[in-house]
Write a protein that binds this DNA or RNA. Structure first.
Length: 899
DNA sequence: CCACACACGTA
DNA sequence: CGTACGTGTGTGGC
């Protein structure tokens, strides 16, 4: 029979991958680099698919010497040390091979290529077709009509080297190649060739004398400088030839039976790929390599079990009929936008693999009633990816309120790994249950299209995959003790957020329009004045063009460098302005005018864009419906998009006018803001246990004056405002991992003064210092930080060799427990406030969250009751060693509700 | 058309 | 050389 033997040089292929793939993109939580492993497995899969071998072996070099280094100490000398990031990947590749059921070999004193040469020789003798893949040119000599070499090329291409191709590329036959290499030398192996002899000369000699032996025999007949050179270096050439000869008779104690792939051990692959963070390779490995015996039919992990059907009218009702209390997976294709949700297609699947896919447009009355009662049944457990989006889709399409979400797989994945930008369902399924979901075509993603039988596969498979995915994720969470965080905090919060988004906040479009026009006038005036100052137009929004004006035309001194030139940010422009203050030449006068108008333009255009963006996002109900992102911030915070209502101007007078456009809607009389005061410093006090800091909060004094009094050794009442400001900056900076350099820059004081300030601060608040140090130490040990609710953030860079990355990770480690705990606390408070409002039968409701602040819409007559309620529930969200102080304000708009 | 850089708003 | 985000604009690659 046709037997084919595939032989790989493991080290050589992995090393190429290591340099081909960006190492920082392949790094696990634990700091292990995996680019070489990933590339190797990828190459292996490709070779396997291309060659369909019956036998496979991977050969590795051993570290330490070989017979070649004994013979010639300089062999492969002069190479740079193996990169630290590559070491350690080889043993992991060998573990992967074990899991894949593929044999790998090493042999003391010999190189991978010797093993390959030996096996190739034996394979040919057995009548096999042999395919070798190695990036080592020495392997050329193995090529013949039964042995093909696949030589790796850039962009993961493989060059198929037959004897003809070798001849074409080297000018000699495969068995002559080592002769040629001996003459020319091999830089990679530190083997010098004959000076003056290149490939052309060597080819000519080999053609003339047949082989190296022939050349040596007739060395005296070769004239000219190269002849003399050859005669002088004849010993080196002989040595080269000896070293580059691959041994074909190694004592390998391996039989061809052992080289037959043993099949993939699923469990081992899952385990290993989990620790390696491999997502995309997992389904490929399982699909493209043979599975080990008894490992083919694993319950719940094979898509063979899936039976998806398209629903006709009445089918949904019938399907749900017998299953309404089972745990079911629900997948929705549609729009999950707040207040504009809709369902195009939906799919529901049960644990047995039965799935039904339905077009919303085909729902009968009976289907709708059955579906809605299932959706609104809290005892009917549902598994959904992005449940909040599903909530909106269902609200929009059925006017029903989703309850009974057992697992939101997106939220679960976020709790496990909060540092990913997105949590794509197909990626999670591939990663956690090792199945490649069928791609969904773009037209399947469109709403309301008629759907043929084939299209059911995508949604059906997704609904089906949710159930095993939820089981795996729940298991991971339980192992990590994070079940509570998901089920008691994030999952119920999802519904609270959905309702907040659904409500939106009323906007006064007349105010927005008035502001737009006022800001627009400022923009135009500033732009014209700026053009006048320099005598021509310029795009004031183009940093590149501004650099031309500032540094070339006006000859101003360069500012801080950016990646693509010099910064033109407000801070730098203000500095430049100050530098021109004492000059009265024409350029300086023009420069000052230009800079002043540019700053004015920046300010005005930002305000204008902000107002325009808000105006555009007002829906027909007169309200702005933001989307709160519950799974994007690595610290556990929420974020807000489309539009972002967490960064509405608040600091300047002009900016605050924008907040006047946020008003109570019909049926409500005011807005209320409730915020935590200094929650991060309170957490610092609590977590550090610093007695002085705790006392400050218990006494309820002005924090920054109190701390400044301690630092400067004076009474708080004697603290000047300059002293207070410095200490305030320092206190806030601590939460962000501020350095003395950063503090000096921010306060525009000497480095030494900043250092002194920090020293004095830590002298007085020693526990704070010890706490901050301990956070980093603990995080380095564990690999992650934790909040008061046990929310983790993984920071593998804490052990990076790269100082910048490491220090950045240290700052994140300092900040994450504080910022994240504050996020935990306000989330608890949101649940508790929401619950209290509902159970108190109040109409007032929460509309927005801005990290440490809630914005509520107050119904007539409820103001005082709500004030008391929010003070109580926010103030008692958690029990700390310092009080949680809450500020409340009420007014006719968001600005007026500030306090 | 898309990704990136820059600038800047919030906590 | 202070954390966490999102958005608008310009730019230069494809």
């Amino acid at each position: 029979m046709n037997q084919r033997l595939l032989l790989l040089d493991g080290h050589s292929l992995a090393f190429r991958s290591f340099f081909a793939l960006p190492k920082d993109a392949f790094r696990t939580d634990q700091g292990q680099y995996t680019n070489g492993i990933h590339g190797f497995v990828n190459t292996l899969l490709k070779l396997y698919a291309d060659t369909k071998p019956t036998h496979v072996a991977v050969a590795f070099d051993l570290s330490g010497g070989t017979f070649r280094t004994k013979e010639y100490a300089a062999y492969k000398g002069g190479r740079a040390d193996t990169p630290e990031e590559f070491k350690g990947q080889i043993p992991l590749i060998q573990e992967v091979l074990d899991a894949l059921g593929i044999t790998w070999l090493t042999l003391d004193q010999y190189e991978a290529d010797d093993i390959i040469a030996t096996l190739a020789e034996r394979g040919v003798k057995e009548g096999m077709e042999v395919v070798v893949s190695s990036g080592d040119k020495d392997a050329y000599q193995l090529v013949n009509d039964r042995v093909t070499l696949l030589y790796p090329m850039p962009r993961s291409q493989m060059l198929e080297m037959t004897p003809e191709v070798v001849k074409e590329r080297t000018g000699v036959t495969p068995d002559q190649y080592p002769d040629l290499a001996a003459l020319v030398g091999e830089k990679a192996d530190n083997l010098p060739g004959v000076p003056g002899v290149g490939a052309k000369t060597a080819q000519k000699w080999i053609a003339a004398y047949g082989s190296l032996d022939g050349i040596i025999e007739h060395a005296d007949e070769i004239g000219g400088k190269v002849g003399a050179s050859l005669r002088e270096n004849i010993e080196q050439v002989k040595l080269n030839r000896k070293l580059n000869h691959l041994l074909r008779d190694m004592p390998l104690e391996v039989s061809f039976d052992e080289l037959k792939p043993r099949g993939v051990n699923r469990e081992a692959v899952h385990q290993l790929f989990d620790t390696l963070d491999f997502t995309s390779l997992r389904p490929r490995v399982l699909a493209e390599l043979p599975l080990a015996e008894g490992d083919t039919e694993e319950a719940g992990e094979s898509m063979d079990a899936l039976e998806a059907v398209m629903a006709g009218p009445g089918d949904i009702a019938r399907w749900l009929g017998g299953r309404s209390t089972q745990r079911l997976g629900l997948y929705i294709l549609g729009s999950g936008e707040p207040a504009r949700g809709d369902v195009g297609l939906l799919a529901i699947a049960d644990e047995s693999g039965q799935a039904i896919v339905a077009d919303r447009a085909d729902f009968s009355e009976e289907d709708e009633a059955s579906f809605v009662s299932w959706i609104e049944d809290a005892e009917a457990p549902k598994v959904i990816h992005e449940a909040k989006a599903a909530w909106h889709a269902i609200k929009g399409a059925f006017n029903a309120h989703l309850v009974g979400v057992d697992v939101d797989t997106e939220l679960a994945a976020y709790i496990l790994h909060p540092d990913q930008r997105t949590y794509d369902l197909a990626d999670l399924v591939a990663r956690h249950i090792g199945i490649a979901l069928p791609d969904m075509e773009a037209d399947e993603l469109d709403l309301g299209l008629s759907v043929g039988g084939g299209a059911a596969n995508g949604p059906g498979a997704r609904a089906w995959a949710l159930l095993p995915l939820a089981t795996v994720l729940s298991g991971e969470l339980a192992k990590r003790d994070s079940t509570e965080l998901l089920n008691s905090l994030e999952r119920p919060l999802m519904t609270v957020l959905a309702r907040m988004e659904d409500r939106g906040i009323a906007a006064d479009v007349a105010v927005l329009e008035e502001l737009r026009s006022a800001f627009d006038a400022r923009v135009t005036a500033a732009a014209e004045a700026a053009y006048a100052a320099i005598g021509h137009d310029v795009n004031l929004s183009s940093p590149k063009q501004l650099q031309g004006v500032l540094f070339d035309e006006l000859g101003l001194p360069p500012t801080r460098k950016t990646k693509s030139g010099y910064t033109t940010n407000a801070e730098a422009l203000t500095d430049l302005y100050a530098q021109l203050a004492f000059r009265e030449d024409d350029t300086a006068v023009a420069g000052r005018e230009f800079l002043g108008q540019l700053l004015e333009h920046r300010d005005a255009i930002k305000l204008k864009q902000s107002v325009e963006g808000l105006a555009k996002s007002v829906l027909s109900d007169g309200r702005i419906h933001t989307t709160f992102q519950q799974t994007v911030a690595a610290t556990g915070r929420l974020s807000s998009t489309e539009p972002n209502l967490q960064n509405i101007h608040a600091r300047t007078e002009e900016g605050q006018r924008i907040r006047e456009a946020f008003v109570p809607g019909d049926g409500y009389e005011s807005l209320m803001t409730v915020d935590y005061s200094q929650i991060e410093m309170r957490l610092m006090a609590h977590q550090s246990g610093d007695a002085a800091l705790i006392q400050a909060f218990i006494d309820g004094e002005d924090l920054h004056s109190y701390v400044a009094g301690h630092v400067y050794g004076i009474s708080p009442s004697a603290v000047t405002s300059a002293q207070r400001n410095k200490i305030k900056a320092m206190s806030y900076g601590l939460v962000y991992g501020l350095s003395a350099f950063g503090l000096s820059r921010q306060l525009r004081i000497d480095r030494s003064e900043a250092q002194q300030l920090m020293d004095d601060y830590f002298e007085r608040f020693g526990a704070v210092k010890r706490y901050l140090d301990s956070i980093v130490a603990q995080a380095r040990k564990d690999g992650y930080t934790s909040t008061i609710l046990g929310r983790r953030r993984y920071l593998p860079d804490l052990t990076s060799d790269n100082r910048q990355r490491r220090e950045a990770a240290e700052r994140m480690a300092l900040n994450a427990p504080i910022q994240g705990s504050a996020a935990d606390i306000i989330k608890i408070a949101m649940l508790s406030v929401d619950e209290a409002l509902t159970s108190g039968s109040l109409t007032s409701r929460v509309l927005l969250q801005v990290h440490d602040e809630l914005v509520l819409e107050i119904a007539p007559g409820e103001r005082d009751a709500v004030r008391e309620l929010v003070e109580t529930h926010m103030g008692s969200a958690v029990d700390l060693s310092v009080p949680l102080s809450v500020g409340v304000g009420v007014g006719a708009n968001w600005r007026a509700a500030a306090h």
